[in-house]
Amino acid sequence: MNWDFIRTFIAVVDTGSLSGASERLGISQPSVGRHITELETSLDVTLFTRGRSGMILSEAGLRLIDDARAMSYEADQFALKAASNKSRIKGTVRITASEFISAYILPSILCALRDAEPEIDIELIATDSTDNLLSRDADLAIRMFRPTQNDLITRKVNKLSLGTYATQEYLQKFGTPFKPEDLNQHRMVGYDRKNIILDGMKAMGLSSNRDMFAYRTDNPLVYLQLVLSGAGVGFCANVLAKKHPELIAILPELHIPPLEMWLTTHQEVRTNLRIRRTVDFLADSLTKLSL
């Protein structure tokens, strides 16, 4: 019997739906459905009745769920006992994250991880490229979008809220925009080849094209410095803007959709204690951040 099917069975019971189990386990909804079907086939029972209200345990499912949870508990105990055979968790974990996350979010978290696990070495790949995890160049990734590959385990750990900002010096020189349409009369800092800002403005119903940006760069560190220097109006993470009192929040009615933060790793995290410990530590730390 495939242990993954038991885990999926428990997740569907706990969440009440295939979609809920999919989000908890970080696998696709069709994969969840396939696990349940194959488990029912192997046991020759019907575990759920499917209806508009979700997945309801059948009588057979009710008889088996307690045993399934007991198996889950024993599996966790097995992992802990195996880990206790090693004196310490040690080795290298390679993390890939966006340049923004790597520079402004992760440093303090990684310092705390090192304090908790002094023999775990961290290699941090700061890049906005998305191919590191798939090409096995990294053990885990932190991205501002949800990966869709079925062979990866992913979970949402936070959301990054954004705002519109300019320096006091810039506003005194060029005036304050009071409505979104006023941005057309201002110097703006934007991205060069990335479409995140353009797509976001279009989603808010604003006309936009790359020519409206007086300054264009894809490097988030340079982007911030341009805004801080008074080059123009820019879009910044609120948590970062709070650290720079010279930045003034403008256009509060311009509701910019937050960016979701996802933590992703390979399936091997279940058997690699070093990576699993790092993933759990990062997930807990990132979830607690007020962003």
Rank of each mutant, 00 (worst) to 15 (best):
Thr92Gln: 12
Asn132Val: 00
Glu117Phe: 15
Val93Arg: 05
Thr8Asp: 07
Ser53Thr: 10
Gln29Arg: 15
Ser53Cys: 00
Glu23Ser: 12
Arg210Tyr: 03
Ala83Thr: 09
Val189Lys: 06
Ile197Thr: 10
Asn132Pro: 00
Ala166Asp: 05
Ile153Gln: 08
Val32Arg: 03
Leu39Ser: 03
Asp182Ala: 13
Ser72Asn: 11
Ser84Arg: 15
Leu221Gly: 03
Ser31Pro: 00
Ser207Trp: 10
Leu160Cys: 03
Leu259Ser: 12
Arg274Asp: 00
Leu152Phe: 15
Asn195Glu: 13
Thr130Asp: 12
Asn195Gly: 07
Ser108Trp: 01
Ile95Asp: 06
Thr271Asp: 14
Ile125Asp: 09
Asp131Cys: 02
Leu113Ile: 09
Pro177Tyr: 01
Asn2Trp: 07
Lys179Gln: 15
Ile6Gly: 00
Val93Leu: 09
Gly175Ile: 05
Thr264His: 01
Arg136Lys: 13
Asn150Ser: 14
Leu183Phe: 08
Ser290Thr: 11
Pro180Tyr: 04
Leu39Gln: 04
Asn150Glu: 14
Asn195Leu: 13
Phe9Arg: 05
Lys243Leu: 14
Met1Ile: 08
Val227Gly: 01
Asn132Trp: 06
Tyr104Asn: 05
Ile27Leu: 07
Tyr223Gly: 06
Asn219Cys: 08
Ala237Ser: 13
Lys156Leu: 10
Arg24Thr: 12
Leu124His: 09
Leu226Arg: 11
Arg94Phe: 01
Leu251Met: 08
Phe5Leu: 04
Gly230Met: 06
Asp67Asn: 10
Ala97Glu: 12
Arg146Lys: 15
Glu119His: 15
Gln77Ala: 07
Arg24Tyr: 06
Glu268Thr: 13
His255Phe: 06
Ile275Met: 08
Ile105Tyr: 04
Asp128Glu: 08
Phe281Pro: 03
Lys179Ile: 12
Lys81Trp: 07
Ser84Val: 02
Asn132Cys: 12
Met261Asp: 05
Leu198Val: 06
Pro180His: 05
Arg114Tyr: 05
Asn238Asp: 15
Ala249Cys: 04
Val93Phe: 06
Met1Asp: 01
Asp218His: 08
Pro177Asp: 01
Leu286Glu: 03
Lys86Met: 03
Met201Tyr: 14
Asn195Asp: 14
Gly20Glu: 07
